[in-house]
């Protein structure tokens, strides 16, 4: 058996040349058992070269990527074209639905006057501060209730009860409390995003692999270290689901609250336009909401891909 000889040789080698431990490991690699990892450790340069080659010449892959890039936009662009044709031929009245070109014109006009930039900035700031406040509260409660039994018993039932109330149903009460100022919008948006973030964070923490937590304890991790290295990364995929869900609710809440009472923002712009029968601006507001919503989702997904790059499901 070759194993015995190579084994003892390896040991002698290690003793004699302690300065170069790398060569010693070869001693135990037996030729008659070609394990995949032994192969790998013996010829890493060959494997690397193969990988580089595969990356260099891939015409087939390039082709599919370019098709994947334009295909999702085929349907929306087609719809806009049909819409423009229907408007131009007079089949749809301008007072019901403006043509895409009219919407574009409205966009350009408002962009130049600076109104659009100001309204988008105001709405964006409202949305983000609501997300930040409500999201933080939901996140902290989710972590606390996932980690601590006492905290869970104290607050989870209450939160589950509050969650079932549609937060938009609170608008009359919110107006009574805060009037129609910024606080009302901030409160509603925060309330809206709180629950999806709470639920998913809580769920994520609860579902962290118990074996990993036990492993962390065995290796003497402090509570903070256990949270930072095991619980938080383990809950992160679920937290991202909550975040993306919350982004949808965030825009929805903002649209509703801006439409009810505001003197700035995209919702205000749309509402004022309605009073003057400016359908092009109303449609413009819808388009902007769509673009902002998509943008938020793209950012969240990029963040997700970056943070979860260890997870095979998120690897590009």
């Amino acid at each position: 058996m070759t194993t015995i000889d190579t084994f003892s040789e390896g040991r002698k080698l290690r003793r004699a040349t302690s300065g170069t431990p790398r060569t010693l490991t070869e001693g135990t690699l037996t030729e008659d058992k070609p394990q995949d990892w032994q192969q790998a450790s013996q010829n890493p340069p060959k494997g690397a070269a193969d990988g580089a080659q595969a990356k260099g010449g891939k015409p087939a892959g390039l082709h599919t990527i370019s098709r994947g890039a334009w295909l999702p936009y085929l349907v929306p662009v087609g719809l806009v074209l049909v819409w423009q044709i229907l408007s131009s031929t007079g089949l749809i009245s301008d007072r019901i639905m403006p043509s895409p070109v009219a919407v574009l014109a409205a966009f350009w006009e408002r962009l130049l006057s600076g109104e659009l930039g100001r309204d988008v900035a105001v709405s964006g700031a409202r949305a983000l501060s609501g997300l930040l406040i409500g999201g933080s509260i939901g996140f902290l409660l989710g972590i606390a209730n996932g980690v601590s039994k006492l905290s869970e018993q104290l607050t989870d039932t209450t939160l589950q009860m509050l969650r079932t109330i549609p937060h938009l149903a609170m608008i009359p009460l919110v107006i009574l409390w805060f009037g129609i100022g910024e606080e009302a919008k901030l409160f509603l948006t925060s309330l809206g995003v709180l629950f999806p973030i709470y639920l998913n964070t809580y769920h994520g923490v609860k579902n962290v692999d118990r074996d990993l937590v036990e492993m962390g304890r065995i290796y003497g991790m402090s509570n903070w270290s256990l949270f930072r290295k095991v619980i938080f990364p383990g809950a992160l995929p679920s937290i991202f689901v909550g975040l993306r869900y919350a982004l949808g609710i965030m825009w929805l809440t903002l649209i509703v609250s801006e439409a009810i009472a505001a003197n700035s923002g995209i919702g205000y712009m749309a509402n004022t336009a309605r009073e003057f029968m400016m359908t092009d601006v109303v449609v413009l507001a819808l388009v902007i909401y769509a673009v902002l919503g998509k943008l938020a989702d793209v950012v969240a997904r990029a963040l997700e891909r970056w943070a979860l790059s260890w997870n095979a499901a998120y690897q590009a």
Binding site: L212, M215, S225, K229, P233, L308, W310, N311
Partner: peptide
């Protein structure tokens, strides 16, 4: 004492080297 279980219990979000470093403690 240290223990090795039947399942490796590695942290999937740490590289191999960082997983090994967990064994050194905080």
């Amino acid at each position: 004492a240290r223990i090795v279980f039947q399942e490796p219990r590695l942290l999937p979000w740490f590289s191999v080297a960082d997983n090994v470093a967990v064994g050194l403690g905080d």
